[in-house]
Nucleic acid binder design. Structure first.
Ligand SMILES: [Mn+2]
Ligand SMILES: [Mn+2]
Length: 541
DNA sequence: CGAGCCAGCG
DNA sequence: TTCACACATTCAA
DNA sequence: GAATGTGTGTCTCGCTGGCTCGCT
């Protein structure tokens, strides 16, 4: 195939991949599409792929000029025969406005002529009421010799894309971007049985959840959306989580709208980890302290995560007081060192102001937030994160394993992780990290932020941070990757000559520690790591 | 006519 | 097409 | 102090050309 048709060749690679691994997932229409597509003339195939990758679904022939395809009308003819393109699709006025330039609107829409000074969307608002019904493009503009092709297989192609990538946020341009080295992905052995969806129903359920979310965001009646969501059978835990996330979002909105009873019902229905703490809060707001208290106690005995526990403890303190129960003893927290600064207000953000103020030639300060610890973890455990576990990788464009945030992520890779962490005990980690840093440079990873980690920073970190500290961080991360990958202090300062460092969380006037920041600070303090909170006041001029 | 936005592109 | 963080507002002791 | 709401920057690249809109 000629190199100009690289995108067509990539699309074929995608289709071949699906046929090879997911043939049994395809429905009749998808199978027929793939079959028929390959029999088309190359120019027609290429045109269709161009359209699939563009915004759509309507395209004017004059906007489909490609040297490698030639005459768009010729190329489109077989696609029209197949019914994959349509020239009679109805266009709403809004859609028509997207297809016509302003001067064309004036020419083809008599009603628009007297309003030349209006902006395009003002004109649309003005005329919307007069033209409620959709009409084919040829009826809107009979005088225009420029056919409009509407893609009718858009939804089918979206399903194929979902089947290939396992999500809807990646698209077929991944192929060329990876080829050009713009997106770089780790090469992972992908078994022939690896694929994004095991059963057709899972794929359909994924799409149904997505559809419910879109409907809800588009303002569809709540009862209908909820009925659709509840009717879905989510055996697959990944899908169940996706559905529960939508339910949770809806409940949150209800809570905001003060529909507390309804929100409570929905929170109770979903397994989303944050749902229970919201239920406690809603019960409090409903003035049902006894129930809130009982639920809080249950959560305290068996918390979903540390974030929940943190909120629950605070709720229990309130509820105990309200119910006239005894005072709770506050667990003693290791104190965190405090630093107070008054700095001249220049236009820069507080973190940078403090960094500049504290930084010296012998002790440079870096503004790293989560990136440093996450990057060190990502480099140290690279082989574990990209270990070729069954199902974790199923196409060549993954930035991380699909089960990264599932509960058994670590245990499934226990041995590899143990080996990675072992390097911190036997001193091999320094050379190993440098080696991985050089070898994997620029390759997508869920933890390594290449833009934030230059060689200087890595050297300073390796020179100044004890292996035991890195190990404690990694173990804490592994404990709950989703929750603990955020909340780390803003700044880190290194004293390379002395081989020491300190971390600093900066708080400007009016800013306060967030829950996840308090957990990281408490952890570091307990472990005897050097960490401080720096409160900044602006000097009054 | 120029600034600014955004789809398209490789 | 989210996520992490800072910043603002409100409420209750 | 706590809870809650809102705003901001990221937008995984970097460039180009078409289009809109406001200005002169
Ligand atoms: Mn910060
Ligand atoms: Mn901060």
């Amino acid at each position: 195939m000629p190199p100009e048709l690289y995108y067509l060749s990539n699309f074929h690679k995608g289709l071949d991949w699906l046929v090879e691994r997911s043939a049994d997932l395809l429905d009749d229409a998808e199978r027929a599409f793939i079959e028929r597509f390959s029999g088309l003339a190359q120019a027609s195939q290429a045109l269709l792929v161009r359209m699939i990758m563009r915004k759509g679904p309507h395209f004017r022939a004059s906007k489909l000029t490609y040297p490698e395809i030639g005459c768009p009308r010729e190329a489109a003819a077989p696609l029209l025969d197949s019914g994959w393109l349509d020239t009679r699709a109805g266009l709403s006025l809004a859609e028509l406005f997207e297809q016509l330039r302003k001067d064309e609107l004036a020419r083809h829409l008599p009603a628009a002529r007297p309003h030349g000074r209006l902006k395009k969307n003002e004109l649309l608002d003005l005329l919307a009421a007069q033209h409620p019904a959709p009409r084919p493009f040829t009826e809107w503009c009979p005088a225009l010799d420029d056919p409009l092709y509407s893609l009718t297989v858009g939804a089918l192609c979206e399903r194929l894309r979902l089947m290939f990538f396992g999500n809807l946020r990646q698209d077929w341009s991944e192929f060329v971007l990876a080829d050009l080295g713009i997106f770089r992905y780790e090469r992972v052995e992908i078994g022939p049985e690896s694929r994004g969806f095991r059963h057709r129903e899972d794929l359909d359920t994924y799409l149904a959840i997505q559809c419910c979310r879109d409907d809800w965001e588009a303002g569809q009646p709540l009862q209908e959306v909820l009925a659709a969501l509840r009717g879905l059978d989510c055996q697959n835990p990944y899908l169940a989580r996706r559905r529960d996330k939508v339910l949770f979002r809806i409940a949150q909105q209800l809570e905001r709208d003060a529909e507390l009873e309804h929100a409570l019902e929905l929170y109770g229905e979903c397994r989303y980890p944050d749902a229970r703490k919201r239920r406690v809060r809603v019960l409090e707001r409903l003035n049902r302290p006894t129930e809130a208290h009982a639920l809080a106690l249950e959560a305290q005995r068996n918390p979903e995560n540390q974030a929940e526990l943190q909120l629950i403890e605070r709720a229990l303190a309130r509820l105990d007081r309200q119910l006239g129960l005894g005072k709770r003893v506050r667990p003693v927290e290791t104190p965190v060192a405090r630093l107070d600064l008054t700095l001249p207000a220049r236009g820069e953000c507080v973190e940078l102001a403090v960094a500049r103020h504290l930084s010296t030639a012998d002790a440079p300060v870096h503004y790293v937030e989560n990136s440093l610890v996450c990057s060190l973890f990502g480099l140290l455990c690279w082989e574990a994160i990209f270990a070729p576990m069954p199902g974790a990788f199923f196409h060549p464009f993954h930035s991380g394993p699909t089960d990264l945030y599932s509960a058994d992520f670590r245990s499934r890779r226990a041995e590899v992780f143990a080996r990675c962490l072992q390097r911190l005990d036997d001193g091999a980690y320094r050379s190993h990290l440098r080696q991985v840093y050089a070898a994997k440079q620029g390759i997508q990873s869920p933890f390594v932020h290449w833009g934030a980690l230059d060689e200087t920073l890595l050297d300073l970190a390796l020179r100044c941070i004890p292996a035991a500290h890195i190990k404690a961080w990694c173990l804490r991360l592994l404990d709950d990757l989703r929750a603990n990958r955020a909340g780390m202090p803003d700044l880190i300062q290194f004293w390379p000559a002395e081989g020491r460092y300190r971390m600093i969380e900066v708080k400007g006037p009016g800013d306060r520690l967030q829950d996840n920041q308090r957990r990281w600070l408490a952890f570091c303090a307990e472990q005897g790591m050097p960490v401080e909170v720096c409160y900044v006041q602006w000097a009054t001029a």
